[in-house]
């Protein structure tokens, strides 16, 4: 992953790489590292100040690579670089068993790069001071849902100003009439609270499609005097053995109409969208 970061910034025009205190597990891929003008400086503090002088003189970002274990020696140099607004891109790697929070005051951003998320990297035009890039791995095992049959139905009824929010969809983005927003597992908390904000703050139709179990981590938001007919939710049963009775009662008690269906064809979508009530459609997994 470090190679990917280096490649990204090389393609952005950065040519200067300062290395310091790299553990053997973090040897840089020479095919990529050798593309840069490389300098190796033993003392991590000295290397940071050296990078500062270089970045300022050349007026270009300089990459500094250091093992996580020796980051603390970079603190003074990063602090000075932050005050002087000099673009040092510090790349580090490790098990993240030490807090990095204190570095917030000496870099503009700390970017955690997870698997396949290199799009979190900042374009060099947006780098004005030092930043830190922390390379790490994470995974999510949340089930994906195929919303396609549902979205095809909505596509006939909604306009370009309307929005459908889908949680963890399996399908790739397709060209629907309406705006389509995907929500990923790291943002599952407060999904219904957010949706109420989206729906009530918008002049147009907003529909939320998501698995049923998420309601268990956001129940109290339904006790809310702002809820009105704009609320349109489609819930998918994710476990055949699970019951939704208690949650449905809670929703009904808060003036939200709940209807059960077992296939997409029998749903009256027009009624669902146009009704004067807050509506939830619950699709059972038969």
């Amino acid at each position: 992953m470090i190679s990917k970061v280096l490649e990204y910034y090389y393609s952005g025009g950065i040519r200067h790489l300062v290395e310091t205190q790299l553990d053997s597990s973090m040897c840089l891929n020479p095919d990529i590292a050798n593309l840069f003008n490389r300098v190796n400086i033993k003392d991590a503090r000295s290397a940071t100040f050296y990078s500062l002088g270089k970045a300022k003189m050349l007026q270009t970002p300089v990459i500094l690579v250091v093992d996580e274990n020796y980051l603390s020696s970079c603190y003074t140099g990063l602090t000075e670089a932050w005050l002087q607004r000099q673009p040092i891109i510090l790349i580090t790697y490790g098990s993240r068993d030490r807090s990095l929070a204190h570095f917030k005051r000496s870099v503009d951003r700390i970017i955690y790069i997870r698997d396949n998320r290199s799009n979190d990297l900042i374009n060099i035009d947006a780098i004005h001071g030092p930043i830190m890039i922390y390379v790490q791995d994470t995974n999510s095992d949340d089930l994906k849902i195929d919303y396609t049959p549902l979205l095809i139905k909505f596509d006939k009824l909604l306009t370009a100003q309307d929005t459908v929010y889908c949680y963890n969809p399996s399908e790739q983005d397709k060209p629907y009439q309406f705006l389509s927003h995907s929500i990923y597992p790291e943002y599952k908390y407060g999904l219904f609270s957010k949706y109420l904000g989206w729906a009530l703050g918008s002049k147009n139709t907003s529909i939320l499609c998501c698995p049923d179990h998420l309601i268990q981590i956001d129940l109290n938001i339904f006790n809310n005097s702002n809820i009105n007919k704009k609320v349109k939710i489609v819930l998918f049963q994710t476990n055949q053995n699970s019951s939704f009775d208690k949650e449905a009662l809670w929703l009904s008690n808060n003036n939200i109409n709940v209807e059960y269906y077992s296939d997409f064809e029998t749903i009256d979508y027009r009624k669902f969208i146009d009704s004067d009530f807050a509506n939830v459609i619950y699709i059972e997994n038969k």
């Binding site: 407060g190 957010k194 109420l196 904000g197 729906a199 703050g201």
Partner: peptide
């Protein structure tokens, strides 16, 4: 979360 939704919309 409600405010987040309001702000976003």
């Amino acid at each position: 979360y409600f405010a987040l939704g309001l702000s976003e919309s």
